[in-house]
Design a protein around this nucleic acid. Structure first.
Ligand code: MN
Ligand code: MN
Ligand code: MN
Ligand code: MN
Lengths: 222, 222
DNA sequence: TCGTAGATTTAGACGTGTCTAAATTTCTTC
DNA sequence: GAAGAAATTTAGACACGTCTAAATCTACGA
């Protein structure tokens, strides 16, 4: 379709990722991309003039249909690449994100199609993040955070944010991955720490870590 | 090592590719990269100030040791990627070049090492071009062109330039690939055409095509 | 040796994407 | 509702990589 610069693609991806239904703020985009708010304003104007976003001055931006399409395309690339790196090249889940971040902008549609086929048209990446379909639809996504769980909840890890490689390595060390079942054994409301039990060992997580882990309530066995 | 822009990497790669022992001219670089000679001059100055090339005004450029190292690194990426695309993703030899041209600048050292290992530390890419080793050494390369062969020469195709996808497809159609044996049946000195015989069929090639095909003289059977 | 064709460089401009500092608008709080 | 704080935009600058047009240099033939 379009032939947007890598920078523009990154802005659109960031806006899509930050989207919570309403407008996305200049400051949030600036923080996500590690550029100044002034830079964001100037790029916003260009993206708006290309009808990829809607911009009301001082009010934030919203993706247009065209802008969302581009963003989903990039996110699809990113997550397919992550899964391919893990499945075909032996990357661990803490390594794939950085590599995919670079490659996502530089593969052809043909490459995308080929790895998607080899992977069997997967719906989820190595972190449990949904892979947008070719037409931009997102598979169902778990949104319940471990940091919001109650003591004695029995939970299945379904998704972990991919942007903290250190956390991913720590989880691996403790044998925690996707589909791992954990039980909440303690919530320290003052410090925010959450302690969980997994396969006979106990793991104490900071609030910031627990907020990156998304869980599903264990189905009740009849 | 360095973190050069994709553009600088492409200039260094072009210079390395155009290198015939002496200086490489501004015009040749401009033609290879499809930019104006003036653009080349300005980039030459920057690369020279970074000690990646040596430049004598009006006299052309030569890669320094550091510059050659960068170029070999990119060429290694390019050719490893081409081979990986062919072996692992089912690309044909006319498809790999365009994809590799983009990816070569964006893979990590780790990615390079992983595909090199999976491929068994290969020495040649799908077009028979030598893959530089990690320390920048080039495996032996065939330099004899089919266009220079004599009538009745029996030759083995060892290398084909990868920059003409159309030619690569034509060769495939005629069953000509690496290691294919061909015999020169006619040279038309006026038009430059060369006619070859391959497995009971006859193929007539333009001079420009034959000049892209590199051959080895068939070993004499005792 | 001279003159010129062709190659190369210089000059000046432009688009992209970034920055800091200053101006403006919106939000919060009293 | 007004003041100050916070967010956003504007203004002006800069590096990169490109261009065209003009100036300059080199090489080659007469
Ligand atoms: Mn990721
Ligand atoms: Mn990116
Ligand atoms: Mn190639
Ligand atoms: Mn390239």
């Amino acid at each position: 379709m379009k032939d947007l610069s890598q920078t523009m693609q990154d802005y659109l991806k960031a806006i899509a990722t930050l989207d919570r239904g309403g407008e996305v703020s200049t400051t949030d985009i600036a923080a996500a991309l590690k550029v100044s708010p002034a830079s964001v304003t100037s790029m916003i104007k260009r993206l708006a003039s290309m009808k990829l976003i809607q911009h009301k001055a001082y009010r934030g931006v919203v993706l247009t249909h065209a802008g969302r399409k581009v963003a989903m395309e990039i996110i699809r690339h990113h997550r397919l690449i992550e899964l391919y790196l893990a499945e075909a090249l032996g990357y661990t889940w803490d390594q794939v994100h950085a590599e995919a971040e670079n490659l996502e902008h530089h593969i052809s549609e043909d490459f995308e199609d080929r790895i998607a086929k080899i992977l069997g048209d997967p719906k989820y990446d190595p972190h449990g993040d949904p892979i947008p379909t070719k037409d931009g639809h997102l598979p169902p996504t778990v949104h319940d955070r471990l940091c919001d769980a109650d003591v004695d909840d029995v939970l299945i890890v379904r998704r972990v944010n991919d942007d903290d490689a250190e956390l991913l390595r720590t989880l691996t060390e403790h044998g925690i991955g996707l589909a791992t079942t954990v039980r909440v054994v303690e919530r320290d409301e003052t410090s925010g720490h959450i302690t969980i039990r997994v396969r006979r060992t106990t793991v104490r997580l900071q609030h910031s870590s627990a907020s990156r882990i998304f869980v599903e309530r264990q189905a009740v066995v009849s």
